[in-house]
Structure formats: C-alpha cells, structure tokens
Design a protein around this nucleic acid. Structure first.
Lengths: 337, 337
DNA sequence: CTGTTAGCGCATTCAC
DNA sequence: GTGAATGCGCTAACAG
C-alpha cells in the first residue's frame, strides 16, 4: 500500500505483463484479453494504484477535464444547480470539473486576458454570460470546444431554454387569470453579466404587445439587486394604475418582493399576484408560483455535449432547447374585483 | 497566434534564451534577471503561450490543484459559499479547484473505495462530513495533505466554527429575551452526512442544562428535510407547554418553519420567535434573526492552509476556529405575556 | 544568472 | 494479444 507512489511499472511487474498492457487494460481497451485484464486489475487493486492523470494527459494530449465559466458566485442558486448537472454528466465519464468564476469587471478582464483555461481542459462550458464580441472571439481563438449554457450563439453548440418564450408563458398565464396588465421586475444589469435577462424582458414586452396592450401598459420595475424587492414594491405602490400582478425575472427577486409586500401588511395573492422564474429550492417552501427551468438538466446536457466535442465527435444536435413548465402554487390567483 | 499549440521551445527561440530560462521566468523565479524576464514575458505574450500544466505537473510532481470533497449538492448554500471562499484563496495562488461531490450512500462508497482524487491534487479539503473511522483512515492513506472544514479531528489541520458554542449563544439570547425554554429544530440525519448537526444539538442541550432547565424542558423537533418546516410546526403545536421560541439548525429550516407558521395565520415574532443558523442570502430578505457563520471565510482559510501544506510548509495554526456572531432582525423579540 | 542534460509516468507507435 | 521503444512538454539538477 505505498499507494500514492506506485507506478504502472510496479503493477506490470506484479501482473507479469508489460506497462503497455497495463495501460491498455486500465482503460478497458479491446486489445487486451479478458484474462489479462483481470490479472492487471487485481494487481492494480492490490497495490492501490491510480493513474497519474498528468502523465496520462501529457502522453495522450487529453487532460480528462472539462472547465466551466460561471458568472457570479458559486453560491448563487443557478450556478450551483448547473454545476450539479455538469458534475453528474462528467463523473460517469470519469472526467473532472474545473470551475472558473467571474464576479467583477477586474475578474472578467483577467480571465479573458490570460485565458488560464487554455490547454488545461478538453472543453469549456460557458454559462449565462452576456459576452462581448471580443470575448467570444477570444474564446474561439483558444482552439478548445465551447458549449454555451442559456445563451445561444448561432451555429455554436449550446444548451438553453427559450427565455423569451418562457416569460411569455408566464405573462400569458397571468393575463388569462384576468390581470391586465402584469408588471415585470428585473435586476439592473450591472456589467451585462446575465444573458437571460435580456430574453426575458423581450418576452415580456412581446407578449404584452401581442395581447393588445399599449405602451403605457408595459411596466418594467427595477431592483438594484436580487434582494431588493423593496424597490420593486415602492415602484409598484407609486404607480397610478397599480398592477394586480407582477412577474419577476428570478425566484430570488420574487421572494424578496413577497417579503417586502407582506411586511407592509398587504397580502398575496389577494392584493398582488407574484410569479417567479427558476423554481429554486425555496420557491416551494414559500408557495411561489413560478416558471420552472430545468437547470441541472441543462448542466447534464452541456456535459454530455462537451464530452462529445472533446472526443472529436459531432453532437447529434448542436443547439439543444429544453422545455420549461409553469408550476402553480399559492402566490397567483384569478383577479377578483 | 497558433496559441493552443505553441510550446516553450517556441517562446525560447523568440526570446533568444533557453527553455529552462523560459520556464523559470514564467514562474517568476528569482534566478532570472529582470531584463530576461521581460523579454520572455513579451515573447510569451506575442505567441499567446500558456504553460501546459499536465507537463508541468509531470516534471515537478505538483499538479497545481486543490480538491474539495463536499457532501450534498453544490446548490446547497453552504457548499456554494465554501466553494466561493476556496476559489478566492486559490485563484490568487494560480491554483485550480477540483470539486468532488458525495450525495448518496453509493456515491460515498464509490468515492472512498476508489479515491479518484489521489495523485491528482496537491491537497484535499473535506467539508462538513461526518466521516467514519474507516473513511478517515482511507483518506489519510493516500499521502495527501488534508484540511477539514467545520469538522475537528484532533491534531489534524482544520478550519471550523465552534458549533456547540454558537448554538449556546443563540439559545442564551432567546432565554435572555424571556423565552423559557426554547425548542430546537433539526433535520433527521440521513446518512450521517453533516458533522455540524451533532455539535449544534449538543450545544442546545448543554446550554439549557447549564441554565437550569429540566429534562422535560428540552424539546428537539425533527424535520424530514430542510424544507420540512411543516413537521416542525406540527410538533410545536402539539406540545402541551408550547414553546414561545424555536432555534433551527439552519436558516433554510428556519425559513421553512416561518412559511409554515405564517400560513396558519399565526404571527412571527408575536406568536413564535424563530432563530436561524448560517445567515444565508435569504435570511436578510425575510428578516430572519440568526447566528451567522463566516462560511466563505472558512473556505478562504482552508485554501490558504491547503496551499501551505501542499508546499510542504507547516501552517502556523493547525486548528483554526472562526468566530460567529448573532444577527438580530425581525423574527425574535422579548417575550410578552 | 543562464544553458545543458536527464528524466517525470504514461499512451502510443511499431514489431512480433 | 502483447512487448519494446519512443516521446509528449516541462522542471530540476548540474555545470558553467
């Protein structure tokens, strides 16, 4: 059990074969007989041997690792959920996951300036980024397969939901409950970090327009952060023709709106209907109706696609679109006059 | 810009030096003159060169990566917050972060059986695990420095809070507000995943005992999951001598209790005071009073310690204990009869 | 301070 | 099916 230090050579000696055979056997190559495979596996087990992936990478050119670039902290629910899905997809293929995070403008410049990921991953998954053209070019220039999550770049591999359509679904639901017209709450884009926000706003505007609302019926409320429901409530209460329903761009913002609203002694859904977006952990806890997106599944699909591209295969479908669904709970109800 | 393919050799040629010098210059070795360093850096920049870490690892024996083992999904707030801290600490040192996750018993056996991490990281950080003796032995056997987060193992490097003391602080606060005696809500340990839960329960019992409560004053309420506040509320309302305050082992559970409680038309803090543990993102949103633990800082300190151990240095302090603090918001108040 | 030399541990030719 | 030989790109002695 000198574990950490034993090499393939030792395993080969113990199994009575050559290192080449050990290498092949451990990677389950069809070029090795079953009998030999068993011997090698047994020897490796006894010596508690594990392949030193760095050496393997140097010899093969593949590092056995997929990198992911996330915007914002890992503790943000969306990022965590995507990482869970990526991990699911990668573990089965015995690949590792390297995380790169960009939270500030400085981070962002540092990342795109040096691209530390290059040569050190077999593929890169980029989530929810509102990339500039320069940044996108920079990424493509590193000669590494790229998969976008919740961001469509024409012709490039991506796994997304249709943010605009999902928002339209939510708005249509509110309108069908009699709410004319729902407002839409959004976090002020700081550094243009989230790509999805744009699509959702577009969806809101498009659906209202399609249903015959006029320009003045469009009410976009702005928060300074996902926890700034208070500003949204203030804006709501300051409107001449107060909306009876509001859709938020995320559950987090929706929950914050709920907290601010009820703290004033106002009720939900009686005085205001609230519809979220995401279906994160606490949405169910608080009975929040929401448009659910399959974030972990986005991650799984992205992992699968990244693995295919890393292996040089062409994925069957380059632009995967996953369905969302409306989850009805207790924060929405028909309008009562 | 053949970027992804240029090697040190090319940089050396362009800078007019040897590859050894390039290697040293890029790692900012003091053995290289400033003038040479500049030349090399310029050449590397022009060729858009990046070191192939796998080759570097093979030659040096260090892989430039710290691994972390988390229990439960990445999207759990605690895990995300720790990962953020680890990332902070590692990025500055140009190290990467590899994530290993264990969510089920099968995962757990697979991980400890094969220890995929061995030889592929310079140190391992283990968070919040209630490890068996076997598992701990298995970890030590891989000859890799280990750092425990929120888990103290005598003599081994760790970064933690004092869970028992933190809970006692919270309970004492409630008692000083006149609540005799507060109950404690906890999630049923499934596979013995979280280490902290044990310490918190101990702290609750110890503080009540220390303040003169009798055995029947100790009320431990059990939930089937962090989102099962409903069970806790049911147990509360079924008690003969209903407590006027409850402390939960986590904010998530506390928030769920709040949701279930207010849904019944009961009020907080009037009819029940609720105290959480963590100070996660949504605690502030909902005005939850809580015992705040510096999770991201735990991650930073763990990263620093892991880097030191990986470099063969002995950290100044092997068992770091970080302070918690009480955050008073709107879910706790003095008892009014 | 800089260059030369010799591997690091594995995957992959090519023989057999 | 298996073994022997070669080299992946870099770092670490050792000279100078």
């Amino acid at each position: 059990m000198s574990s950490a230090r034993s090499r393939m050579e030792d395993v080969a000696a113990r199994a009575g074969v050559s290192v080449a055979t050990v290498s092949r056997a451990l990677r389950d190559s069809p070029l090795v007989s079953d009998a030999t495979k068993q011997k090698v596996l047994a020897a490796a087990e006894e010596l508690d041997f594990a392949v030193f992936r760095a050496a393997s990478a140097l010899a093969s050119g593949r590092v056995g690792r997929i990198a992911v670039l996330i915007s914002g902290p890992v503790r943000a629910w969306f990022n965590g959920a995507v990482l869970d899905g990526l991990y699911d997809g990668l573990r089965a293929a015995e690949h590792e996951l390297s995380v790169y995070r960009v939270t500030s403008l400085a981070d962002r410049e540092a990342f795109f300036g040096t691209l530390p990921v290059r040569r050190n991953a077999d593929a890169l998954v980029v989530t929810s980024f509102a990339l500039t053209t320069d940044e996108r070019d920079r990424l493509s220039s590193i000669g590494m397969p790229l998969v976008y999550v919740n961001q469509q770049v024409e012709g490039l591999p991506s796994v997304s939901i249709d943010d605009a359509a999902a928002t339209r679904l939510g708005i249509r639901y509110l309108v069908n409950l009699g709410h004319r017209w729902p407002a839409f709450a959004q976090v002020d884009a700081r550094i243009g970090f989230t790509y999805s926000a744009l699509g959702r706003l577009d969806g809101y505007r498009a659906e209202l327009a399609g249903l015959g609302a006029t320009a003045s019926d469009v009410r976009v409320l702005r928060a300074r952060g996902a926890d700034d429901g208070e500003s949204v409530v203030a804006q709501l209460l300051g409107l001449a023709d107060r909306p009876s329903a509001v859709m938020a761009e995320s559950d987090e913002l929706a929950l914050s709106i709920m907290a601010a609203w009820t703290r004033l002694g106002l009720r939900i859904p009686d005085d205001l209907c609230v519809l979220g977006f995401d279906d994160q952990t606490l949405a169910e806890t608080f009975g929040l109706s929401t448009v659910a997106q399959p974030v972990t599944e986005l991650g799984r699909r992205a992992a699968a696609m990244a693995l295919q591209l890393a292996a040089g295969e062409e994925p069957a479908q380059r632009e995967v679109l996953l369905p969302v669904r409306l989850v009805l709970r207790r924060t929405t109800a028909a309008l009562r006059r």
